[in-house]
Amino acid sequence: MSNDGKQDMDLERFRALVEAYGGDRKRWPEDRREAADRVAATEAGRALVREACRLDAFLALSATSLPPAALTGRILQSADKRITLRRRLQRWLVGAGLVGVGLAGGLTGALAVAVVAPPPQIPIADTATAFGNIMTEAEIAQEIQ
């Protein structure tokens, strides 16, 4: 710390400042500008500022122009279409997945019932049918009485 309460700056801090903000002192933060000016007055500081100014000039030459508004509109419109198609596909796949999970659950439940439940006890006789036993007329007459 210096006597006026401002931070002192060494060459490494000055190098970081110049690399971040460039060679133009107007772009340097005001609270560090005074200390940076003291370092910039040295030979090493002047070399760093010259190097940063050359880089600033090169970057200014390579500035690009903005694309036409029509191109920007077409790009945004095609992106919107792609997002819409992607959302539709995602919704369809989610629906298909839910149907698949429902079918798998139903089949699993049916299989569990078939495996776990005991088979029905149906007496098997020669006269048994799906509708009951075939009875002779004598047996029917006996049941009626």
Rank of each mutant, 00 (worst) to 15 (best):
G109A: 11
G106R: 07
D80R: 15
R27P: 00
T42N: 08
P123I: 03
E143S: 09
A70E: 13
D10V: 03
A44C: 01
I134P: 00
V116A: 15
A138L: 13
G95I: 00
Q77K: 14
Q121V: 12
V115L: 15
K26N: 08
A128M: 13
A63W: 01
P67C: 02
D10N: 15
R15Y: 03
D31W: 04
P118Y: 10
A96K: 14
L61I: 05
A57V: 03
L61M: 13
R38F: 04
A63N: 04
R87S: 13
L48Y: 07
D24C: 03
P120I: 04
P123K: 09
I124V: 13
A69E: 13
L98A: 14
R86N: 07
K6C: 02
A138Q: 15
N3L: 15
V116F: 12
A60E: 14
R91M: 08
R27D: 06
R38M: 06
M135F: 12
T127G: 10
L11Q: 11
A47W: 00
V94C: 10
A141Y: 06
L71N: 08
S2K: 12
T84D: 09
V101K: 05
E12P: 02
R32V: 03
S78Q: 13
R87C: 05
G73W: 08
I134S: 09
D80F: 07
G109R: 10
V101P: 02
G22K: 03
G106H: 05
S2Q: 11
T136S: 15
A104P: 01
I75A: 08
V115H: 12
R82W: 03
G132S: 04
W92D: 14
R25I: 05
